[in-house]
Amino acid sequence: MSTAALLALLVVIGLVTFVYRYAMIGLFANRSLPGWLHALCRHIAPASFAALTAGELFIHGGEVVLALAAPKPWAALVAALVAWRTGNVLATIGAGMAALYVFKWLF
């Protein structure tokens, strides 16, 4: 993507985000949101993060690659275990990066 296109995209995303934020305070100040939107919002973050992580780990050049000797999926597994045990973001990043360096050296 060119810098100009990226700038335009970011401005659009910023505007849309601002409209969300201002929506109920200023635009439709006396309305409430439908229940299904509440239900939907709870799932957006887990679905987005999972799709992106799976893509980063297993998709290369538009193809699914499941290789046993790839360091990133194994490092991600270590990170997932640390995240699950500690619930700590910094510990997860630290363990995942350390594991990545070890697996890159091993494979």
Binding site: A45, P46, F49, A50, L52, T53, E56, L57, A76, A79, A80, A83, W84, G87, N88, V89, T92, I93, G96, M97
Partner: peptide, 10 residues
């Protein structure tokens, strides 16, 4: 992506 993994766990 490691950050996403940490957030996912929660």
């Amino acid at each position: 992506p490691l950050t996403f993994i940490a957030l996912l766990a929660m």
